[in-house]
Design a protein around this nucleic acid. Sequence first.
DNA 1: AGGATAAGTCTAGAATCTCG
DNA 2: CGAGATTCTAGACTTATCCT
Length: 298
Amino acid sequence: MGFNDIYDQKLINEDYQPEVKAYYFRSWNNYLMDFHYHDRVEIMYVIKGSCQIHIENYDTEKINFRKGDFILINAMVPHKLIVNGDSDCTMMNIEFVFVKKSNFLPSFREFVNNSKELEELIAAKEPFFILKDYEDVYQLLKSLVVELSSPSAEQSISASLLMYEILLRTSGAVMKRKNESPTENYVNKTKLFINLNYDKKITLKDISAYSNINEDYLNRIFKRSTGASVIEYLTGIRIQKAKMLLCNTNIPIIDISDIVGISSRQYFNQVFKKATGLSPKKFRKSFEVELFGEAQKN
DNA sequence: AGGATAAGTCTAGAATCTCG
DNA sequence: CGAGATTCTAGACTTATCCT
């Protein structure tokens, strides 16, 4: 394997930093790629639809990658993308290498030495990792792509930080996968689905269909694991997002209920008050008072 | 074999949501 | 706001799996 092999000893003994060499965001339909490999580590993330990613000599083409699934493929590992004709697939990919440390940020070696999860990822020496995004990796990838698209010629500090953050979250996902029981898998899948779809009109049936298990059973194991029912969790996420929108934007309260996936304003007021003790209007007002002081109250 | 535990289903009543 | 429709919750139950 070439130097950009993520398991290369040089990365542990000397000071290198990850650097993104390519990235893209695109939709595929009825697409069959040939096997190929490159001297870069690749992360392929499914944003929408489904696909298969075949790693040479492994049975991975049987795995259906869906929204929120991603794969980390080491350099020089032959792989190909398969998107069936009946389903579109939107993906975000990044390819990165390791270059000599060139800024004040810690080197990859220092991160590995200070992260048990990253250390275990490096020790695993697997050619690829199929993972689920319970850690908001998508948001980080999106921010990274935005950062890389900015006109500045040099790769920014911010991009380097995002790249490190993505690697840390990825190693976290690897550990989760390793320790995960089937029940935990259902619970984590449910959390993922809710976090990606809280803004839509979703029911327990939709959520259980995503994990392919009985809705009542899902609700039970979810409550056992988290202490909250699936719907309580969903409502919690919605209230959390609504609070953020109430504090940081001046979007009308009427629209906020729609944005967080609650179509009935009456119901939104009801659940918001139950969760926070204040109506959305009073909540926003109290935040403004806290921020600008009593002087600007009127 | 049989006991313990986990996984999964069914169902009635409660809670939530929509609509007029 | 209230009635009716829809969805959710939780207890009881069955089935599967593991361990002794």
